[in-house]
Amino acid sequence: MLVFIIRRLLQSLLALAVMSLLVFVGVYLIGDPVAILASPDATEVDREQIARALGLDRPLWEQYAVFVGEALRGNFGKSFVFGQPAMGLIFERMGATVELALVATVVSILVGLPLGIYAGLRPDGIAGRSIMAGSILGFSLPTFWVGLMLIMIFAVQLGLLPASGRGQVGSFLGLHSSLFTLNGIVHLILPATTLALVRAATTIRLARAGVREVLHMDYVKFARAKGLPERRVIGVHVLKNIMIPIVTVTGLEIGSVIAFAVVTETIYAWPGMGKLLIDSIVNLDRPVVVAYLIVVLFILVMLNLIVDILYSVLDPRVRLGEQKG
């Protein structure tokens, strides 16, 4: 188990080194942050001063070396734009993104799992087919288009829901979340639905495929041969088996939900780290982009670990030490 965790961490450190290097080279190739930061009428001397202050006057490899040295001491640099520690900026906005991603994930399971199971039990019925058609739509419609349509219908036409912003944040037991105020929840509905759509579509397909496969297993027939009521056959024998892939995929995909949140946050002006990332890329605010990558990678690594542990809980045949990779 420990070996397993250490191996995972080393892999992620390597990934981090490669990705941060890419960001350094990328920003260097795209443009000059100084040009964005300096006012249009700044003199050459002003510019040099800014460059020196940000360490941008040194050769690229030296900048990277300085970054690595500082990062190893836990210092990830200050935002070029805000002059504040980049990590701090990310953390300020992380809560909003994580909240959005988690709510979207929960919604996608609550909606996708029952629909998928139903479609798996009645694959040839009208309802089963409609659910599948819906999930294909959910996959193929672009997030921004769905977001805009939802805004058009529910915010503009019907005027039922707010179209942008995070609303009021309440706190409960030291946690801050918009789930604790009605106004906050109302603001969450549209962005969470938008973000949940693709995940729900995936959950539907996984659940449907899982049910169809598991239903033909001998152990399901044996469960029926024991005289178990159908609700126990489906609700325990089938469900427990299909949950293995669903939990795995959902857990791993929370990372990509956070990444997809970039689009959703932009549409709904949701003050999360996705929106911060976009702003920072536009401003060539390298420290913030790198800090974002570190945080997202960290989240992914943690999710991977949690999923592996959950997996071994759900599937007694799996022992962590035996895993490859």
Binding site: M217, D218, Y219, F222, A223, A225, V236, H237, N241, D315
Partner: peptide
């Protein structure tokens, strides 16, 4: 009923 393949008859996750 007792089934043919004992490896498949019991639910692996219960």
């Amino acid at each position: 009923m007792i089934f043919q393949d004992p490896m498949m008859t019991l639910n692996p996750v219960l």
